[in-house]
Design a protein around this nucleic acid. Structure first.
Lengths: 233, 233
DNA sequence: ATTATGAATAAGTGCGTACATAATTTTGTC
DNA sequence: GACAAAATTATGTACGCACTTATTCATAAT
């Protein structure tokens, strides 16, 4: 199967992907060397290289120096989530954004939070509890810890004007983040804030972010009952 | 800041990323052309190109032909989920995998399912309900629809030996998938199966997969109460 | 039999050039 | 001034070569 003329590395990727899909190459099989595929498809090795590294990124094949390329034995679904700034998300859905500060204090972070950052202590820390509103209705309840050693300027931010969420993302971009997603019955005090029945099943996203090795913030975001995280790709 | 000698495109990416992090380039700013960055960092344009397209994939910058490269105004957190075959996931956690078929029938798929595939009808369809066990305890309850027009061989699969999940992923790789994640209180009949109190908050993953434009399968997977989806990157 | 040593191999990276493609800006025409 | 055509520009892709690096495999030394 020779590709006629003008081709992009995406075409090469499709050819290889199709061979995996139709079992020309089966899970565990070793693929020909980049060089040979290049000869067969009449393109440069660098084009094959680009296609193959894309397939590797997608979790479809595994590549090892000298070992060559093999079709993954245990294919994984790689789904990419886009998590926007809450305000942007709400406005994109056509609702008016609102923000209520529930509490703000400087205190000592519990070990469970420090553990998320992989440090023994992250004191002093700011704890912010806030409610993001969409069209006047509760949308996300966030419980946030901020490492004041890493972000000392945060002490001077007026949270009545801008949410901690937005201030941080606009002023303190992170270099690494970790996300956990789970379901949780809502606590009695939170049920009132979120205007849902006690014990409702809520989707919770916990995000932890670092700049380099320094902790920035850890946030537990509890979403409305009907909230859905979506991916496409 | 000139890079000394041997450098990989990852180094170039880090230089640019750091400039964005420390606000040398601010959200909305236009970056220099690849060519100029290449001159400054003393490398080839193709190296800059590789670094830049990686930053674009990560959602940090946006690139347009002629328009140049700009720092994204609304930074998004791109989190990549790895969703393995359930059996592999359970065994990776050190539990013995078990699989119980609850029901299997050939029927007509409801409109809500067909709608997920973006088709008017996907008949005939197989509906499989099954429970995946980890160390003898319920782990995932799956409610699956399979398009028999796309996957006719599925009629002959003996589901007492292999789960629909595993058979499909090993025999019918997909080319496109869509994932939705949400929280849901468990239904009374499902509570008994999953051995949890009625109304417990469950994490649900719905996955829809296609091969080309043809529907393959849609599955609603309800996870154990303490289940956490994790991402790192 | 076990462990160093080293040759061979296949992917990873870098470079420079050429051309393709899309979008913007300039120019030309009415 | 409005609109279409053409020049310009920055990213996208392709290619071939050279070199690097990790890993395997065969061989030699212990």
């Amino acid at each position: 199967m020779t590709l006629a003329d003008r081709q992009s590395w995406r075409d090469v990727r499709e050819v290889i992907r199709n061979r995996i899909l139709n079992s020309t190459y089966k899970p565990g099989d070793k693929l020909p060397r980049d060089h040979d595929i290049a000869l067969e498809l009449e393109c440069a090795r660098s084009t094959v290289q680009r296609a193959m590294s894309s397939l590797a990124e997608d979790g479809i094949v595994e590549r090892k120096r000298k070992g060559g390329t093999i079709v993954r034995l245990d294919p994984v679904t790689r789904a990419t989530l886009n998590i926007p700034i809450t305000k942007v998300e709400i406005e994109a859905r056509g609702f008016k954004y609102g923000h209520h500060l529930i509490s703000s204090e400087v205190t000592s972070a519990p070990p469970s939070v420090a553990a998320r950052f992989g440090v023994a202590s992250m004191d002093p820390a700011a704890r912010i509890r806030a409610l993001h509103m969409a069209g006047g209705r509760p949308y996300v309840l966030e419980d946030r810890w901020i490492c004041l050693k890493t972000v000392p300027e945060f002490r001077d931010v007026d949270l009545t004007y801008i949410s901690a969420n937005e201030w941080l993302v606009r002023n303190r971009p992170y270099s690494r983040s970790d996300v956990q997603i789970y379901a949780l019955p809502i606590q009695p005090d939170e049920a009132e804030l979120m205007e849902v029945p006690e014990g409702s099943a809520m989707l919770v996203l916990e995000r932890t972010t670092w700049i380099g090795r320094e902790p920035i913030t850890h946030v537990k975001a509890t979403h409305t009952v009907d909230y859905r995280l979506m991916t496409s790709g």
